[in-house]
Design a protein around this nucleic acid. Structure first.
Length: 549
DNA sequence: CGGGGATTAT
DNA sequence: ATAATCC
């Protein structure tokens, strides 16, 4: 909608191939669902406007911007896809409370104007006494959420919904209740009721199609089904781990912690299509993907260590559910981005990608693919200073690189002449220009993957060749394993105590001071009441399920 | 019949 | 390293 203000007020869908992957809420009023076919969507809403969303660049950009805003409130931000986040705000709440304690009466939280403007709801009863001060603290959490949502709207003009709760499960479920552009608070005592309200177990985060099939085969469908069956019984049917987790979840219990998301662990691109049956077209498409991928890798700034390619083979039985096969190998040092130019050698990258491809697909037999993908995994920080450890490692790479090139003469020269990559990518327009580039560079290339393959095939042993050039990844040292394992569960409390360079003197430096001040506790309007409690309601259970009635 | 990602198991 | 599962 931000990209196409001209469609304001119209039902709008985002199309990828023949799928409407998502839509605005106006379109949803017509019954359009996520991942519905274009056909069906247009049948429900003939005036539906569709925009192509196969290129995720702008979504990735906005996702990063949202993430950066969230990180100004707390470093404890866990990313769930492009538009979904968990924030651990215990330390923010504590600081907010202590900072305002002397001048502030917590009872006024019930009556806050900012919360009213943020379309705050409460799921379940809010008038119960709680031995702990969880009610007060969660109300502060709701204020923080309202402040965050305001910031996101002011800076990005994005609306969003939020759920506020004492654990991730309830927060996620609550966030789904009142959409769009609203937020929902659920107190711990209302957890079981919320879980009852969702009904199907498939709504529990982490329970997808496969788990649901397993449960259904045991006649378990609803949260109440899980509650009824004894734990020992359930463990035998679906395994101890899943059984225990679902038993907890059914009561609104979830002890998993917010795991701060660091840098990406992989950067990849995929393209799906009806069918590709020619090696030349595979090469063309992988080349196009690789060129875009190296751009993304340059933006990231780190050096990729390994390459993985993904293939989905056509499956006559289930057209869409064809499983993916992947092959992965270390990037030989000689095709890391050159230390001098910082550029990738696309030709050699493509040769390596085609080698991986041939490890999946036996091209001596007919094949047809419906998806190709390529990704970089495992990254190393790029060095700057001359004395840094990574700089040292890079220099070693540079030395090896010379040696490797010399051992690579088989692909350094050889022929042109091979009749490949004469395909005209008429199918989808997305990589048209990239394809043209590909053909240009291929003709100036001294070698093609196909000619290379025939070299390999004529040598005695393909396995030998792969041994030499499709290197296994270096194993982690014991120290590295230990280091990566031990940072597994420092509590978030501890993480919140890390010193921030910008405000070293602060008591709780995890909260940015400037940002913090954008979250004023309103002390006026003391007579206002919490939205859902503004009118006294009969003690009718229906009210707990109908928002703000 | 999507395009990213992540985590977990083996 | 690879597959399976999930969002």
């Amino acid at each position: 909608m931000l990209r196409h203000p001209e469609y304001e007020g119209k039902p709008l869908g985002v199309q990828q191939k023949s799928i409407v992957v998502t839509s605005n809420y106006l379109a949803r009023e017509y019954g359009i669902k996520k991942c519905m076919s274009v056909q069906e969507a247009l049948r429900l809403c003939p005036e539906l406007v569709l925009v192509n969303g196969e290129d995720l660049t702008s979504y990735r950009l906005y996702s990063t911007k949202v993430f950066e805003i969230l990180q100004q409130f707390t470093p404890l931000v866990e990313r769930l896809g492009f538009d979904d986040y968990f924030l651990e705000i215990k330390s923010v709440e504590k600081q907010l409370k202590s900072q305002n304690d002397s001048e502030f009466d917590m009872n006024n939280l019930h009556t806050d104007e900012e919360l009213k403007e943020s379309d705050s709801k409460i799921f379940g009863p809010s008038d119960e006494e709680c031995p702990c001060d969880c009610h007060t603290r969660l109300m502060i959490g709701a204020k923080i959420a309202a402040g965050i949502r305001n910031r996101i709207y002011e800076e990005l003009h994005l609306t969003c919904s939020a759920g506020i709760a004492h654990n991730k499960l309830l927060a996620k479920l609550a966030g789904s209740l009142n959409k769009p552009n609203q937020q929902t608070l659920v107190f711990p005592c209302s957890g079981p009721m919320l879980l009852s309200a969702i009904g199907s177990i498939s709504k529990i985060p982490g329970v997808g199609q496969k788990t649901m099939e397993l449960l259904l085969s045991n006649n378990i469908k609803t949260v109440d089904d899980v509650r009824k069956i004894p734990l020992e019984n359930l463990e035998l049917k679906i395994g101890v781990d899943l059984a225990r987790r679902l038993k907890d979840n059914a009561e609104g219990i979830d002890e998993t912690v917010v795991k701060p998301s660091g840098k990406k662990q992989s950067i990849g691109l995929e393209d799906g299509f009806k069918s590709v049956s020619l090696v030349a077209e595979v090469e063309s498409r992988l080349g196009a993907l690789l060129r875009r991928l190296t751009e993304l890798a340059m933006e990231d700034g780190r050096i990729p260590i390994a390459m993985r390619i993904t293939v989905r083979k056509h499956d006559m039985n289930k057209p869409t559910s064809g499983k993916r096969e992947t092959r992965q190998c270390a990037l030989p040092k000689h095709l890391l981005p050159s230390t001098k130019t910082g550029m990738y050698d696309h030709n050699k990258m493509l040769i390596l990608a085609m080698k991986l491809f041939h490890r999946i697909v036996d091209v001596s037999k007919p094949f047809h693919l419906t998806l190709l993908g390529v990704a970089f995994t495992k990254f190393e920080e790029r060095s700057y200073g001359r004395s840094s450890i990574t700089s040292f490692l890079r220099k070693q790479v540079a030395v090896h690189s010379v040696l490797d090139i010399s051992s690579e003469e088989g692909i350094a020269e050889v022929n042109l002449g091979s009749p490949m990559s004469i395909n005209q990518d008429s199918n989808d327009s997305s990589d048209q220009s990239a394809t043209n580039l590909m053909n240009t560079s291929a003709s100036s290339l001294s070698c093609s993957p196909i000619s290379k393959l025939s070299n390999v095939a004529s040598s005695q042993n393909i396995e030998d060749d792969l041994q030499n050039e499709v290197e296994p990844l270096p194993k982690k040292t014991k120290l590295e394993v230990w280091l990566s394992g031990r940072r597994e569960s420092p509590s978030n409390e501890m993480a919140g105590l890390r010193l921030s360079p910008s405000s070293p003197m602060q008591v709780s430096p995890s909260v940015d001071t400037a940002v913090f001040k954008t979250l004023p506790i309103e002390r006026r309007d003391v007579t206002r009441s919490w939205p859902t409690t503004s009118k006294p309601k009969p003690n009718n259970i229906l009210k707990y399920f109908i928002a703000n009635k």
